[in-house]
Simulated assay, not measured.
Amino acid sequence: MPVHPMWEPYPRLQSDLQSVLQVIESHLQIHDKQIEATIKDLVYSGGKLLRPAYTLLCSQIGDVTHQEKERSIAVAAALETLHMATLIHDDVIDEADFRHGNPTIHTQQGNQFAIYSGDYLFCVCFTILSKYARTLAHLEFNARSMEKILTGELDQLHARYQKGTSIKDYLTRISGKTAQLFAVSCYSGAVTSQATRRQTMLAWNMGHYIGMAFQIIDDILDFKGDFNTMRKPTLADIRQGVYTLPLIYALREQPEQLHPYLDKKADLTDEELMEILAIVEKTKGIEKSRWLALKYTDKALKSLNKLPVGDYKETLYELTAMLLERKI
């Protein structure tokens, strides 16, 4: 079962990620074979499997005698199904036509079909966790984490087209929407290795900071990237009413210039979007966002530095640097 080519330099991790996909597929048993086939297509659609990779790497934090590969692979699989479920629901809410360059489920099968598919993956997530979570408290922790992720998604939905969104509002939103799942992925991996309380919290903090920086950079790339990089049109977020950090910084400097554009909501023309981009660049909204992403990156690396010595740390450094230094 192939995984993304980015894992080829890490054959051990590549093999474990293939096992993650196998665990997910083994739990996809639906009476409606059309839905089952659609979900399997999503599983093998070319996602990078970043969150399970962090789970697997952090499962090496604890004492080597306590590391259980089967458990860590299963927990990584559960968290990836949670991630896929949120992506399906996101695509419905955002009316996104593509995911990883492929048509989204709702564009092919309709919203009802897509929502059911996402709900089913939530069930798969907890089915796997119920078998492999080390303690009931760990299972409850993951349930609370899922609640925070969904709250972040709801916050984004309520914030659409809101010109008064503050930097604090934005950071709170991405803390739930993105950083929470990175944090719980790192934390859960550490828990499976029976790492100490301090070590698991370091893993949590590292994942949180990585997730914050990751989302900020993603949002910058919406302004500066291209379709081949993001697999979605540039400035798609503004058209959908999702006002991210570069625009929020610009709104603080030039509200009188930007409000007439934003009042048009989804009716913005391509030319007007380019004029918004020019204002964002003029007010250094992208540069300021980049600075904040680097600040979170520094915090992530400081947490990583405090983790126990091991081969896994070098891979964590390389993976984190690769994610947080994407072309802007």
Rank of each mutant, 00 (worst) to 15 (best):
L57F: 08
S289I: 02
H89G: 07
N142H: 00
E95F: 05
L79E: 10
T244L: 04
L316C: 11
A300E: 02
R173M: 15
G225A: 07
L50Y: 03
I128F: 01
N111G: 10
M146I: 00
K131F: 03
V242M: 09
Q29T: 15
T127A: 06
L139I: 01
F98E: 00
A77T: 08
N142C: 00
P9K: 14
L301G: 02
L268V: 05
H208S: 13
F214K: 04
Q215N: 02
A77D: 09
L87E: 07
A76I: 13
L79T: 10
S117P: 15
C58T: 11
I286E: 00
A74K: 07
L273Y: 15
D298M: 05
Y116T: 11
I210G: 01
T55K: 06
E318I: 15
D63I: 00
K232S: 01
Q60L: 06
R134E: 05
K295E: 12
M201F: 10
D237V: 00
D237M: 01
G47Y: 09
V64P: 04
D267M: 15
S175T: 13
Q22C: 14
T244E: 02
S130Q: 10
K224Q: 12
L49F: 05
T178H: 08
L21Q: 14
A137C: 03
P9T: 13
S188C: 09
R231C: 07
E140T: 04
S19Y: 15
K232Q: 02
A143K: 01
E68F: 00
S117K: 13
D222V: 08
K131E: 12
L202T: 05
L319N: 11
L245Y: 03
D226I: 09
